[in-house]
Design a protein around this nucleic acid. Structure first.
Length: 468
RNA sequence: GGCGCCGUACCCAAGUGGCUAAGGGAGAGGUCUGCAAAACCUCCAUUCACCGGUUCGAAUCCGGUCGGCGCCUCCA
């Protein structure tokens, strides 16, 4: 079964066919580094990671590019207001460059903990200003821009295909329904390509340009950098659903406006993580970071497992109950694998029988069906319970498919085997207490070990322990 | 106001015309145990928000009602 993906820019589900055999150009909208990423943001990167892993499982050589937006986002709407970087810097007493670096590191640390395979190319907006200026010049040559009020704007009326991605009805666009319209715009949906210093005196990051000293509009970086690293026509562009209407719509307008040809073949969009109070966001005041979860005693991979509870194109409800369920589920999965490993002294089987091959195929089919991770995980767990199949084969299927799940099954298992010497000593001490039928001492030791993250299990074949 | 998505057991959810409605968590009973924990076994939706319709047949398609969410604004 070939890979089928849901293309926002197409009729929906479509077979994936790369532009160049064996190669895939993949661009994923990256973080704005003025704050920590919250777990809603991270959901999107995990979805993209599954895509990356599935593509590589198909044998594609994936050029995976991600931008880091360290300039250009405005705190306010409608192209007004201060740069978010500036606000963040002021709050923390850091320079905008320092704060960008700080949160960039924090971001990659987070996705690393989630076992997200790093992009092959990470590019910073501030390091690609010349490319952005070049792109504006191309648009200018083609008559798609105008200058007004100190800014350079993209004129959507000069680009007939504007809004096709989001299926926007040009007549129905109601700009200004909730915000004040920039009076310099000819069409309310025109957007800024270049801001000049005359407009915002406090903008911290500025560059010289043919239109005056200033800084680029937000959408520009993705167009300029993706084309630099992936060419003017590439395979897949990903991001969150919130980007469909504005960000990606504008990216398409300026990219295709500049080249006069098709830019991206497949657009994939991940849905939101929903809190009881609705969408997660800084302004909504319901932000949870990965660090928050870790402080609460969850492992980053518990969150990754949690995300596999729902398909990437459906909203996922977040709750501590649901996260607890995922943590328990991941623990039981590892426990299950441990017992299978114990029954398979030779390790995972290299040869698979009919049933194991079929299970493997069905799991791959689920991933190939628009990255259906929840179905794949359900199939894996059902298969692992099938004791008509040799433990070694079940283990082999689990480890093999973990190449896509990315739950780090083998490593997580191994980690549980590493016992600190003082804990080993306590276990021995407890065994002696039990033999002496001094259960009070034994139970106290068990409690202390539990607090240290070592769980004790007395079984007919002796006392066992594991790291949690 | 416009556009779109969703509503499956206590919870998270898969399922997109036809085998017994995945899987996980929680819960109940049992085996085991000094007690626990874990593991294993068993049980846990004749039913898919509600009402109509299409069909030999629908959770799955169509229409309506109610409810939730998202986008239309920087935002994953």
């Amino acid at each position: 079964m070939g890979l089928t993906l849901f293309n926002t820019a197409g009729p929906g589900l479509e077979p994936f066919v790369p532009i160049r055999d064996g190669h895939v150009g993949l661009y994923c909208c990256g973080p704005t580094v003025y704050n920590y990423a919250h777990i809603g943001n991270l959901r999107t990167y995990v979805f993209e990671d599954v895509l990356r892993r599935v593509l590589e499982r198909h044998g594609y050589d994936v050029a995976h590019v991600m931008n880091v937006t360290d300039v250009g986002h405005l705190t306010d709407d409608a192209d007004e207001g201060e740069d978010k970087m500036l606000v963040g810097a002021r709050e923390r007493g850091m320079s905008v460059w320092e704060i960008a670096e700080f949160f960039t590191r924090a971001f990659f640390a987070d996705i690393g903990k989630l076992n997200v395979v790093p992009p092959t190319t990470v590019c910073r907006a501030t390091e690609h200003i010349p490319e952005m200026i070049e792109l504006i010049s191309r648009l200018e040559e083609r008559g798609l821009t105008y200058q007004a009020g100190g800014n350079v704007y993209f004129s959507i009326d000069a680009f007939p295909r504007y809004g096709e991605l989001a299926r926007l009805d040009r007549q129905e666009l109601r700009a200004g329904a909730r915000i004040a319209v920039d009076s310099a715009k000819r069409n309310p949906h025109d957007f800024v390509l270049w801001f000049t210093e005359g407009k915002f005196e406090h903008q911290a990051m500025q560059w010289d340009s043919p239109w005056g000293r200033g800084y680029p509009g937000w959408h520009l970086e993705c167009s300029a950098m993706s084309m630099k690293y992936l060419g003017e026509h590439f395979d897949i562009h990903c991001g969150g659903v919130d980007h469909v209407n504005v960000h990606h719509t504008n990216e398409i307008a300026q990219s295709e406006g500049a080249t006069g040809k098709r830019w991206v073949n497949y657009w994939l969009h991940g849905e939101f993580l929903i809190m009881p109070s609705g969408r997660m966001g800084k302004s909504e005041g319901n932000m949870i970071t990965l660090s928050t979860l870790e402080e609460e005693g969850y492992h980053a991979l518990d969150y990754r497992y949690f995300l596999f509870g729902a398909h990437y194109r459906t909203q996922l409800s977040f709750s501590v109950e649901a996260l607890d369920a995922a943590r328990s589920a991941r623990a039981s999965l590892l426990e299950h694998l441990r017992s299978l490993a114990a029954d398979a002294p030779g390790g995972p089987s290299r040869e698979l029988g009919h049933d194991a091959r079929r299970a493997l195929q069905r799991i791959d089919d689920a991933f190939n069906d628009d990255l259906n991770a929840p179905r794949a995980l359900g199939l894996l767990r059902a298969f692992l319970k099938d004791d008509t199949v040799a433990a070694a084969e079940r283990l082999a299927v689990a480890y093999d498919t973990d190449g896509v799940f990315g739950l780090d099954m083998q490593t997580s298992l191994a980690r549980r085997e590493q016992l600190a010497p003082e804990h080993a000593a306590m276990i021995v001490e407890r065994e002696e207490a039990r033999k002496a039928r001094d259960f009070a001492t034994a139970d106290a030791l068990r409690d202390r070990l539990r607090e240290a993250g070592v769980v004790i299990e007395d079984t007919p074949s002796g006392t066992k322990w594991k790291i949690v």
